[in-house]
Amino acid sequence: MSTDKHPKSWDKLIDGGKKNTTHKIEEEIEIYPWRKSFMSTAPDVAKPSLKRDFELGLVYPITEQVMGARKACHLDPMPPTAHKFPEMADKKRAILDDMGTGKKLAFDTKKRVYDY
């Protein structure tokens, strides 16, 4: 196996970041070759997990599969985190809005995409 390529899991994260971004830097460079490129506030690789901070308040969701596994481990299928208390994620979003964090990250909290 060659280590020239990135692991697929990393490529998936990059794709996730690009999918949630309206501004397509690579395409614009083709259209406007004289325009200077710039670095976005958050790198593509970090965008999916930052987005989940706004949406869930946590990095990982509790899926049906996870709930089944939790049950098999003799736990409540839904942990007593913000997954179960989504109002805590609402509070977190309110705090982030109050601090202007979405804007600083170029994350549109209403459309839930990185838009700049």
């Binding site: 990982y60 969701p61 996870v66 939790r70 481990c73 942990p79 985190t81």
Partner: peptide
């Protein structure tokens, strides 16, 4: 405090 990984990926460790 469970954090993000424990409840979603390590329920056996949580228990």
């Amino acid at each position: 405090f469970l954090g993000c990984v424990m409840p979603a990926k390590m329920p056996w460790a949580e228990k």
